[in-house]
């Protein structure tokens, strides 16, 4: 027990340099970009004099030497202050908090449903190995895997929103409508179907393939053969013995994918006008709102690092050998 605790503590300690390294890299990368927020504000107002641009730059501290800006940034990070957005003039934390919910709803729904369906299909394909079900599932998974997500989203809009008119084409809720709590949830759900479906299909394909491979690997192992010899049914073996162990690689992948959630959603959020973090990242980038961008990247990397830590711990629980290593 103590060894497991110290293992967790050790992994947790490793998180700190990782997060700091990410902060440094983000800072360097973003400051290599030509133009800054003062340029954008001046440009958007269409009329700024050189003095106005200079004054903006001065009041944002963008005229300071890079190294000074860097220490200001790190200093703020250490006090968990993410700063104030240059373009929107509001605290970054607030801006992120406003968008986090939408992204979480979209992502958790997509991934949650996808993992569920993917695992079942994966097990099914593995049980029916080399049957036409297996082939059909594999081909389908491959096709979905090969489809550009944003394009799939557009096609779903054409079909379900325009032609059939059963789902809204974008947004997260019906604006201005005064719904009770139940209707509000249903309303969001209706808006959620197409974007979550677009994202989810991809993950269904991914997890089906992964689970199938993982199951096939395990079904050849000795202890399964033993179970078979004892006369257990294939179905029972699959669900009780094999599935638990086949889950290991899935959990690892999930950990890695938490980070990709944000990225995957840029395209889908753009297509569906979903008010989440992905759009915020893109807008911040295009407007050179470095403070906001650094804030989002920092938060998302912290989330990824923490999730990976969690995955390691869960892994350790599922497979005690690893923790001891």
């Amino acid at each position: 027990m103590t060894s497991r605790l110290s293992y967790v503590a050790l992994r947790a300690l490793q998180v700190i340099p990782a997060v700091l390294a990410i902060a440094v890299l983000n800072f360097i990368l973003l400051h290599m970009a030509p133009g800054d927020a003062a340029d954008v504000i001046a440009g958007l107002s269409g009329h700024a004099s050189a003095e106005m641009t200079a004054e903006l730059r001065r009041s944002f501290g963008l005229d300071q030497p890079l190294i000074v800006q860097f220490f200001v940034y790190i200093g703020r990070l250490l006090t968990l202050d993410l700063g104030i957005s240059l373009i929107q003039s509001r605290p970054v934390v607030e801006l992120i908090a406003e968008r986090m919910g939408a992204t979480l709803i979209l992502m958790l729904t997509a991934i949650g449903v996808a993992v569920g369906i993917g695992l079942l299909l994966g097990i099914l394909a593995a049980l029916r190995h080399r049957s036409w079900t297996d082939t059909a599932l594999s081909v389908l998974a491959l096709v979905v895997y090969a489809t550009p997500q944003f394009w799939l989203g557009l096609m779903l809009i054409v079909f379900f929103s325009i032609t059939l008119d059963i789902f809204p084409s974008g947004g997260m809720r019906t604006i201005g409508a005064e719904f009770g709590p139940i209707h509000s949830v249903l309303d969001v759900a209706r808006h959620l179907v197409l974007p979550a479906g677009t994202l989810g299909l991809f993950y269904v394909a991914l997890y089906t393939r992964l689970m199938r491979t993982s199951m096939l690997d395990i079904m050849t192992l000795d202890y399964i053969t033993t179970a078979r010899a004892k006369g257990m049914s294939e179905l029972r073996i699959a669900f009780t013995h094999a599935a638990r162990n086949a889950l290991l690689p899935i959990v690892t992948l999930l950990g890695v994918q938490v980070g990709h959630l944000l990225g995957g959603s840029i395209l889908v959020e753009t297509v569906f006008g979903w008010p989440g973090l992905g759009r915020l990242v893109l807008d911040a980038l295009l407007q050179r709102d470095l403070v906001l961008l650094l804030g989002i990247l920092f938060i998302s990397s912290v989330v990824v690092v923490l999730t990976n830590l969690l995955v390691d711990v869960i892994y350790g629980l599922l497979d005690p050998r690893l923790a001891r290593k």
């Binding site: 990410i22 990709h260 944000l262 990225g263 995957g264 840029i266 990397s301 990824v304 990976n308």
Partner: peptide
């Protein structure tokens, strides 16, 4: 470390 940054975001 590179794996922690969302890959599409990094590419963008």
């Amino acid at each position: 470390f590179f794996l922690t940054i969302p890959s599409f975001v990094l590419a963008v």
